[in-house]
Design a protein around this nucleic acid. Structure first.
Length: 473
DNA sequence: TCATCTGCCACGTTTGAAGTGA
DNA sequence: ATCACTTCAAACGTGGCAGATG
């Protein structure tokens, strides 16, 4: 794993010949981003990071936290995060490793998380690490809270976008710079599959402290007191194996065996018959992916896009494939194209845009009204939180105390019903190439906003327009 | 039958309102 | 009256568990 700060930049791409693009590109060429808690991320990555996703929404752990430098101190920037599928597969946890279980589910509504401080001057972003602590993940495709929707048992990677813009209305004229860190790749799960991950999380997450200490064990004891048939108790998959391997140790109370069974420690490697790669879903999974993907060479344009995104170089082989439209490049292991992806396009193509605003959790809850999914995007969406059930736009109207009146955070949804046909930018050109003005990334993005005009008086309205789409690669 | 998902639980942490004093 | 600080309760976030679901 190479240092995350070793950011690969690509400024050799001539900026499109549009106003302001050239200077923006130049001015932002020195922007550097590093991942905070990189070691922690790597610890998880070595095991195979899993992120719990729940219907009400779950925070990420480790949190997405970045350091920025090279920004213009007085220029304003917007920080965005989205999560992109690493590949087109669904995985399953089997015998200590992740295996390809089939073709990925159709993409859920795509949402982008806007850092609540946005927009803020470069000095603000650079003075301290930028945390995306409140970013939440959900598996509820009908989520109305604006959380980022993911599929369980699928692999994702966060992307961080920096946009120099005075406000959200300027975004489309601005240059996007996109960064990603290979060690932040994770598998979304509804329940932990790898016991090592659980342990690592409990050990590092203050909120889980109760489980590390008495709480869980006490509860477990209470449970056992009322147990009907202990041997029927379902064990964690790893624990089951561990019990076979170390029956005596396994039966110790959880917190006892925990301390001396640290993940990644040599002792663990030595003491556990399981191969190291068995703990690394990407060791195993990547092998699958390798096989799959190397047989699906990137197209020239795909490679170009890959090159234009600022990636942290990584041995993680899946990264290049983030732009790989596997449906266009069938591979032996990829199930035959069918359904929504059979055309090589995400499932939400040709579906009407659905957007809605909802208050941030921090804000006072406002009644949400259903918004017909057939509501055309060109309709002036009301400020009073229209809501649909397929995708929502989460706009926090409760701003940070230090910035009254400023949007707290925003999600940018593309609903499952959203028609990319409406955006109809070439899949490979919509996005993903940092250094490109936003309107070049997504021509329809601009078109839509222009279509709407600027009658919206706040960022919430602006947020109704998707900034990113999974279809872009 | 199995893999996965869901709701609930109890506990620690965080947050912000209320109280207090300078 | 204002500000800074402290206290405390409520809300939040967490992983485990058992049962439900497909």
């Amino acid at each position: 794993m190479q240092p995350s700060r070793d950011i690969k930049t690509n400024f050799g791409i001539p900026p499109p010949s549009t106003a302001a693009s050239g200077s923006d590109s130049f001015l932002q060429s020195s922007v550097r981003m590093t991942l905070e808690d990189s070691d922690l991320w790597k610890s998880f990555h070595e095991i195979g990071t899993e992120m719990i996703i729940t219907k009400p929404g779950r925070r990420m752990f480790p949190h997405c936290k970045i350091n920025l430098s090279g920004l213009l101190p007085y220029a304003k920037y917007i920080m965005l995060v989205d999560l992109v599928p690493v590949d087109g597969f669904r995985y399953k946890w089997n015998k200590h490793k992740w295996e390809v279980a089939g073709k990925a589910e159709p993409q859920p509504p795509c949402r982008t998380y806007l850092h609540p401080d946005s927009p803020a001057p470069g000095s603000h972003w650079m003075k301290q690490p930028v945390s995306f602590l409140k970013l939440k993940l959900t598996n509820n495709t009908l989520d109305q809270h604006g959380h980022i929707i993911l599929h369980s048992m699928h692999c994702y990677q966060p992307r961080f976008h920096i946009v120099q813009a005075d406000d959200l209305f300027s975004v489309r004229w601005s240059v996007f710079q996109t960064f990603s860190f290979s060690e932040t790749t994770f598998t979304a799960v509804t329940a932990y599959q790898n016991g090592k991950i659980t342990k690592l999380k409990i050990d590092n997450n203050p909120f889980a402290k109760g489980f590390r200490e008495q709480g869980t064990n006490m509860k477990r004891q209470r449970t056992l007191r009322t147990q009907v048939c202990p041997e029927k108790k379902k064990l964690n998959k790893d624990d089951e194996e561990a019990e076979q391997l170390h029956p005596a140790e396994f039966r110790r109370p959880y917190y006892e065996g925990y301390e001396d069974d640290e993940v990644g420690e040599p002792k663990t490697k030595e003491g556990c018959p399981m191969k190291e790669e068995s703990y690394s879903p990407w060791g195993a999974g990547q092998d699958h992916s390798h096989n799959i993907r190397t047989e699906s060479p990137l197209s020239t344009e795909t490679r170009e896009i890959y090159n234009t995104e600022q990636l942290v170089p990584s041995p993680a082989s899946y990264q290049p494939y983030r732009f790989h439209d596997f449906s266009k490049s069938p591979s032996p292991l990829s199930p035959p194209s069918s359904g929504s992806q059979s055309s090589g396009q995400p499932s939400f193509e040709s579906q009407p845009l659905d957007v809605a605003t909802v208050p941030d959790q921090d804000a006072k809850p406002a009644p949400l009204e259903p918004l017909s999914s057939s509501c055309p995007p060109s309709l002036p969406l009301a400020h009073h939180a229209p809501q649909d059930y397929a995708g929502v736009l989460n706009v926090a109207m409760a701003p940070p105390a230090t910035k009254p009146g400023v949007i707290s955070h925003l999600y940018n949804p593309y609903t499952a019903e959203q028609g990319l046909g409406q955006w109809n930018g070439p899949p490979h050109s919509q996005y993903g190439s940092s250094g490109y003005p936003a309107h070049h990334l997504h021509s329809e993005y601009s078109a839509q906003s222009m279509h709407h005009g600027y009658h919206h008086g706040n960022v919430a309205d602006w947020s109704q327009y998707p900034l990113f789409s999974y279809s872009c690669w």
